[in-house]
């Protein structure tokens, strides 16, 4: 059965960084349980859309609903897992791979009884540990669990970041360029993992520059260049004509026009 509440719904959404408009008049609706690729040139506001969901950017105007509620309440409920771009992480931080993945559970730990939050984690709720081990297995990083994160290669770092998002077992996975700068085996592994998450009923929303993978895996493609240039199936959206329109921006883009993904 398909839950009719959209995973993400935006109405006339505008956002700005320091008086610089990054998103203008975005109206869209993404159904649950699907894989959406967000495509657009650099600086087009793709990451800003994710930042609005995770709360590091506040909307200027308009409305954003996640699973029918405000993003803040869904963040607190643990329904949103987020994988940032690699450059945004402190790779020098003294923390092991396993503990990094465990931080994905920190939001859920707030629902544990108080005593469990004050004791070392081996005595606390075993479900956190199990979720962490499962996520490490899923991205094939279990052998590296005890290593410090600074000692990993680029592809391994991405896999650890993905594992952290998976460990949260959230209904919505937000991924900012999960395939940027990874080696081909890691890329295949990440895509296979995301396929599995989608078949488990989770919603996958990823910002990407990687057209081939979007074409193969995504259910929907969003073209964004400050405004919503288009939304539809990968075949429709990743045609040469649409990509050309995306590159020049879309002054003629339907203002406030609504397209709901098939």
């Amino acid at each position: 059965m398909i839950d009719p509440v959209p995973a993400l719904q935006a109405r006339r959404l505008c956002a700005a960084y320091h008086q610089q408009t990054v998103l203008e008049d975005i109206t869209l609706s993404l159904p649950q349980g699907q894989w959406t690729a967000i495509v657009g040139p650099n600086g087009a506001g793709k990451s800003s859309l994710l930042n609005l969901v995770i709360g590091s950017l506040a909307p200027l105007r308009g409305e954003l609903r996640i699973l029918g509620k405000s993003p803040a309440s869904q963040r607190r409920a643990g329904n949103i897992a987020y994988m940032a771009q690699q450059e945004h992480m402190e790779w020098d931080f003294p923390i092991s791979v396993r503990d990094t993945v465990l931080t994905g559970r920190y939001g859920l730990m707030r629902h544990d009884p108080l005593w469990q939050r004050l004791v070392p984690r081996h005595w606390a709720n075993p479900s956190h540990r199990q979720a962490v081990e499962a996520a490490l297995e899923a991205v094939d990083m279990a052998d590296y669990a005890a290593r410090p994160i600074g000692a990993l290669s680029g592809g391994q770092k991405k896999r650890v970041m993905l594992a952290r998002a998976l460990a949260q077992q959230a209904r919505i996975l937000l991924l900012d360029e999960p395939l940027a700068g990874v080696d081909p085996p890691s890329e295949a592994l990440i895509l296979a993992t995301l396929e599995r998450e989608r078949s488990a009923g989770r919603t996958v929303i990823m910002v990407t520059h990687d057209m081939p993978s979007a074409r193969v895996h995504a259910d929907n493609v969003l073209l964004i260049n400050r405004t919503l240039v288009g939304m539809g199936t990968p075949d429709e959206m990743l045609s040469d004509a649409m990509l050309a329109r995306l590159a020049v921006g879309a002054p003629e883009a339907r203002h406030g026009g609504t397209r709901v993904a098939a």
């Binding site: 709360g55 590091s56 963040r75 402190e90 994905g104 920190y106 939001g107 937000l174």
Partner: peptide
């Protein structure tokens, strides 16, 4: 470690 993640987790 990761303020953005803290925000995404609703802290």
């Amino acid at each position: 470690f990761d303020p953005q993640q803290a925000q995404a987790l609703g802290f």
